[in-house]
Design a protein around this nucleic acid. Structure first.
Lengths: 190, 190
DNA sequence: TTTCAGGTAGAATGATTACTCTACTTGCGT
DNA sequence: ACGCAAGTAGAGTAATCATTCTACCTGAAA
């Protein structure tokens, strides 16, 4: 992964984030990457490879931005992650999560679906770890996913809703379960 | 909206749900609609109109399936909606919400974004009404959106997470708010 | 000085696509 | 019997796109 290659990936990410995954043709991608067609194809031999490269690049950038330098206190860390996701949407993803967009644009593409899965699972694990709530990994991911989907509709209010739900989840001891069948707790509740 | 027209819309919905919005070409859509090319274009004069027709059709079908014959008790109604969303994903949308997919596939399309907004807002309103929690409309929508996004990853466990969050929200009296700045409550809390 | 790895610019190709058009059929009201 | 509204079947068109190919440039190592 040399320096030119990452510069290309960064350009590709910008292009796909700005115009989605269907619209930009190769020429537009080349303009965004600021290299010649030949070089572009040298490192990423098909359009699909370009999509994957852009997403890989974004994945790293996203995790860095969300999880670096979080507060140590689990509760505060959780709220901070949610706020940062809101900021990320504001500044970089106002049309919604790029990974979901990519899969939506090419639902038969297995490599893409796999990348989405890895992206979400790594995010969920790191969030659960930061919040010291491994037993609520899925619920925490659900809140963030919901936030990202609501963002285009409600902007900042979506963020406040997510914070409220997170607070409710932390406050909840599992007391008011739907119809019996309490959540299985082989793990300790912090 | 004559009978043939709705039959075509139903076929289009099936095609887009099965293969996404990019893949199917006009010929595939015609096969799904089971009409001639000429008739297809007569009622829906461009591919974009076909997409809109499919989504309109799905919108009606979705609301019908989720909200008809709900329990009267608000708490049970809420849980039942969540379960039905899970069933809907299982049987009809295993690749994720079709409205989000459509917008993701054509993010510059204003009519599509508008339709997405209407769809989500109507769903949110009806859910909040059924759960008798108008002050939590956004939080309830967030839970369902999160559920739909998590579904492809976790299937039924996503549903249980959504139920748990809903229960936590109902149990929560707004006590444990993030960092000061309590939620503004000009509306009464039920 | 020569060589060559690695870059640029952009034309050519072949496949695909949305959409249009022509020609033909069928069922029904008068 | 006839006309016609509304359907089918499918060939034709013009544009777009991903990918490949040709020709040229440049800077540093030998």
């Amino acid at each position: 992964m040399n320096e030119l290659q990452t510069r290309i990936a960064a350009g590709l990410e910008r292009a796909f984030a700005a115009h989605g995954f269907s619209a930009p043709n190769i020429e537009a991608l080349r303009d965004a990457a600021q290299v010649s067609l030949r070089t572009l194809y040298k490192y990423y031999p098909s359009r699909n490879d370009m999509v994957l490269a852009a997403l890989e690049f974004r994945h790293e950038r996203y995790l860095e931005k969300i999880f670096s330098g979080l507060p140590a206190a689990p509760r505060e860390a959780l709220f901070e992650v949610i706020r940062r996701v809101g900021q990320w949407m504001e500044s970089e993803a106002s049309h919604g999560c790029l990974f979901h967009s990519a899969v939506a644009a090419a639902p038969e593409n297995g490599a893409l679906r796999h990348l989405l899965q890895r992206h979400k699972q790594e995010f969920a694990q790191r969030l659960a770890a930061a919040a010291k709530r491994p037993e609520n990994e899925k619920e925490l991911l659900l809140i963030c996913e919901g936030l990202m989907q609501l963002w285009p509709l409600y902007r900042n209010e979506a963020c406040e809703s997510a914070l409220q739900l997170a607070a409710a989840l932390l406050a909840d001891d599992g007391g008011g379960q739907p119809t019996a069948g309490r959540r299985d707790l082989h793990e300790t509740v912090a």
